[in-house]
Simulated scan of single mutants.
Amino acid sequence: MKIYTRTGDAGDTALFGGGRVPKDHLRVAAYGTVDELNAVLGVSVVEVTDTQIRDRLEAIQHDLFAVGSILATRPRPDGSAHPHLPPLPVARIDEMERWIDAADDELTPLTQFVLPGGSAGAAHLHLARTVCRRAEREVVTLAAEETVDPDAIRYLNRLSDLLFALARLENHRAGRADVTWKK
């Protein structure tokens, strides 16, 4: 199978499950940003020094493939799920909340705004957090126009919170202080 197909040379792309849309369609922007987030998490995995954090990020990367494939698929007219789609990893939302709570238990309470930085791993996690927030905004925009599973929005919202907590945890475990905003 060749990497290039030439089918998108006119500026449109195929959706999973059928149909074509322009490459600047809201759906393409949403799943494209989820793909970008996955790539940024891949860089974060390389930079993070803590094994537990790396393992969690790798699990999330697999989740994001499912989220992206769901976003790349128009809902069926009867509302049923496409038979070849992976399930949305809804159970991970509660798990991410537990991970955030555990990180908060280990960290000192926040008293100042935290700037992206500290260790290389934490800086990359902060970058991933901002890409995650953009992905969430783009999915919300898509949901205003077309049907989107609301759990996809919940997943991305919780993930951005987790990435903030993990960035702080990576700094803490690496012996680096968070970079705080000085007025």
Rank of each mutant, 00 (worst) to 15 (best):
K2I: 07
I3Y: 09
I3T: 07
T5E: 12
R6D: 10
R6Q: 14
D9N: 14
D9Q: 13
A10K: 15
A10E: 14
D12L: 01
A14T: 11
L15R: 09
G17Y: 03
G19V: 09
D24H: 10
R27Y: 00
V28Q: 08
V28P: 05
A29N: 13
E36D: 11
E36A: 12
L37S: 01
L37G: 02
L37C: 05
A39S: 15
L41Q: 07
G42E: 00
V43P: 06
S44G: 12
S44T: 11
E47H: 15
T49P: 03
T49R: 15
D50Q: 10
I53M: 02
R54K: 13
A59Y: 03
I60A: 03
H62E: 04
H62L: 06
L64W: 00
F65M: 01
F65Q: 04
V67W: 00
G68S: 12
G68C: 09
S69Y: 03
L71G: 10
A72R: 05
A72G: 12
A72D: 05
A72L: 07
T73R: 11
R74G: 05
P77G: 04
P77L: 14
S80F: 06
A81L: 13
H82Y: 08
P83I: 15
P83M: 08
H84V: 04
H84Y: 06
L85H: 10
P86N: 09
L88N: 03
V90F: 07
A91P: 10
E95R: 13
M96F: 00
W99L: 12
I100Q: 09
D101P: 06
A103I: 04
D104E: 15
P109R: 10
T111K: 15
Q112T: 15
Q112M: 15
L115I: 11
L115A: 06
G118I: 00
A120C: 12
A122K: 00
A123C: 08
H126I: 02
H126T: 05
L127F: 13
R129M: 03
T130A: 14
V131R: 12
V131I: 11
V131M: 10
V131A: 14
R133T: 03
E138V: 03
V140G: 01
T141Q: 15
E146N: 09
D149P: 09
D149R: 05
D149N: 09
Y155Q: 04
L156C: 08
L156F: 02
L159F: 02
D161I: 02
L162W: 01
L163V: 04
F164V: 12
A165W: 00
A165N: 05
A165E: 08
N171G: 04
R173G: 04
R173Y: 04
A174C: 10
G175Q: 02
G175E: 01
G175H: 02
R176L: 06
R176Y: 06
A177F: 11
D178T: 05
K182T: 15
K182A: 15
